[in-house]
């Protein structure tokens, strides 16, 4: 087994004459918390879709959990977890039904699901809410549940697309605590965020500008390189170079 969770080399996606992702190269180590930053329209979502096996690249190479993004997309989907701010759980299913549904999709046995569901509900203090519709939960609880569901099948890598958007400051920190715990268990975390303080919680951070990765390093080193005091300033310095905008 290698120590690499994600490997990308010259990964490119073009839509007609528009190059959404422009030959990006990077590596994410196993168990690493990797922050994937960029302005709206920089190409983050397109890059993530390729890594999740949902979109075939135009050029370049990439492997995720050891599987090829051109030929082994189904194996990739089985080895990863995914959650986003916009969609994560079915609002009209109960907490328990959501867990069961996702675990079932990943082909987990009834015995596994039963045992782990009980453990999870206890850990999240959601035992009393187990049979309530997800719709009725506060956003922060939903996001914590969504993350737990995304890693329920013990994926090698979990992709988190703005998981804490709009979440209150206390719950946002509890959420990051869960990320740390998952990373300690060896799950690789690939996360996007608009909160610059969260960039500091990552082991390494990449910043995309106009489809390229213009910076990739530890937060400490990035601040040194750009001679600024915060990740906010690093981001502004880089993103201001951008020629294109929007999402």
């Amino acid at each position: 087994m290698t120590n690499t969770a994600i490997h990308a080399e010259g990964l490119t996606k073009r839509f007609g004459d528009f190059t959404a992702v422009d030959a990006i190269s990077f590596e994410v180590k196993k168990g690493e918390i990797f922050g994937f930053l960029g302005a709206n329209g920089a190409g983050k979502t397109t890059a993530m879709r390729m890594l999740c096996g949902l979109s075939i690249p135009t050029a370049g190479k990439a492997s995720v959990a050891g599987f090829d993004v051109y030929k082994q997309t189904e194996q990739i989907k089985r080895s990863i977890g995914y959650m986003s701010q916009k969609f994560s759980l079915y609002e009209d299913l109960t907490v328990r039904e959501n867990i069961r549904f996702y675990a079932g999709i990943y082909g987990k046995s009834d015995a596994f699901i039963k045992e782990k569901t009980a453990f999870l509900l206890k850990e999240l203090h959601l035992e009393a809410e187990a049979n309530k519709l997800v719709r009725s939960l506060p956003l922060g609880w939903k996001q914590k549940l969504a993350f737990s569901v995304a890693i329920f099948h013990e994926p090698e890598i979990v992709f988190l697309d703005e998981p804490t958007g709009g979440v209150d400051p206390v719950t946002r920190r509890e959420f990051w605590n869960m990320i740390y715990k998952a990373a300690e268990r060896g799950i690789t975390i690939f996360v996007t965020t608009h909160y610059m303080d969260e960039a500091e919680y990552c082991n390494r951070v990449s910043i995309m500008v106009d489809g390229r990765i213009d910076a990739l390093d530890t937060p400490t080193q990035l601040k040194k390189t750009f001679e600024v005091r915060s990740m906010d300033e690093v981001f502004l310095k880089l993103a201001r170079r951008a020629k294109r905008s929007g999402d």
Binding site: N40, E162, G166, L236, A239
Partner: peptide, 13 residues
């Protein structure tokens, strides 16, 4: 109502 939600740091400024 939340004009800057999901908007990056540069556009927010």
């Amino acid at each position: 109502d939340e004009p800057t939600t999901g908007v990056d740091a540069v556009s927010r400024k």
